[in-house]
């Protein structure tokens, strides 16, 4: 290789490294800060583990819920959201992909419409729905809204997976004597496991990270708080922020998602590309 070619081959790397620098620096600071007394730029003023003491006692003082309580809330919201989204989406996706019934076409167009529809614009209306149901300021209410928002994507994704399942297999099961519901549960669902897994991961991540909806429909840092809301309350402009602790709690929230992602990136990237386009 000539020098010119070498330089040519290096150019893409140089550009990529430069563009990705803010991300790398940001995450580096996050880790650094969580182990530092304080930071100045990218310089630590001293190493400490005390930022992580929140694992033992409430991080921001006695009056606030413990990290475990908040993590538990977040986990409950994320897991129940995941389960519900997966079940409801695969039920509806199955019907839309496989069953013939009056109104099927309209249901399909509707799902598509909602898939592209910006749901955040409805928050004001939802506020009144939750109040009417008595679910305002409850984890259940927050969970239900997040499930609702995730459904159009989930249904469309699952429909795409069901579309690719062999018809003969389903016919065979019907002839063997299964009801449509059993066909769904015993025959079809096990063959779309990758789809279920992908949807579950997407749903879990969005449930775990959610900030806007919990913050809108529950009150701040009470016993009902989820991690994002909780964290944000200690990131204000008015009081001196304990950056060390805030970043440690932030990392604490980020790590499960990052681990999740690293193990499933292949699956997610392909589904994401397909799913965003509306089905695989």
């Amino acid at each position: 290789m000539t020098l010119k070619q070498k330089i040519g081959a290096a150019i893409p790397y140089v550009i990529l490294v430069i563009t990705v620098l803010p991300i790398v620096v940001g995450y580096f600071w996050l880790v650094l800060s969580s182990f530092s007394v304080s930071t100045e730029g990218l310089r630590s003023t001293g190493f400490t583990l005390s930022n992580w003491s929140f694992l033992r006692e409430p991080p921001f003082g006695r009056g606030y819920p413990s990290i475990w309580r908040v993590t538990f809330n977040t986990f409950v919201v994320a897991i129940s959201m995941t389960l519900t989204v997966v079940i409801v989406s695969s039920l509806a996706g199955y019907a839309l992909s496989r069953l013939n019934f009056p109104g099927r076409k309209s249901f399909l167009s509707l799902t598509l419409l909602l898939h592209a529809f910006p749901s955040v614009t409805l928050l004001i209306g939802i506020y009144f729905v939750l109040r009417a149901l008595g679910l305002y300021n409850t984890l259940l209410g927050v969970g239900m809204v997040m499930i609702g928002f995730e459904l159009p994507f989930g249904i469309w994704l699952m429909k795409g997976f069901f579309d690719n399942v062999s018809w003969d297999m389903e016919r065979a099961a019907l002839i063997d004597g299964a009801s449509r519901f059993r066909v769904w549960g015993e025959i079809i669902l096990p063959t779309v496991k990758p789809g279920l897994a992908a949807l579950a991961i997407f749903a879990f991540i969005s449930g775990w990270n959610a900030w806007l909806i919990p913050r809108t429909f529950t009150i701040g840092a009470g016993q009902q708080a989820t991690l994002s809301v909780f964290l944000n309350n200690f990131r204000s402009d008015t009081v001196a922020v304990q950056w060390g602790t805030v970043t440690a709690v932030g990392l604490f929230q980020l790590v499960p998602v990052a681990i999740f992602f690293i193990f499933t990136q292949d699956l997610l990237l392909s589904i994401y590309a397909g799913g965003a386009k509306g089905g695989t």
Partner: peptide
Amino acid sequence: RLEAYGFLSPAVLLVTLFFFIPVIIIFIL
């Protein structure tokens, strides 16, 4: 038909609660 609507009903319920009704509410508000 009941079978098909059975599969759809949970989704329909949530979509009604968090898409349709909110849209109507907003348009009245």
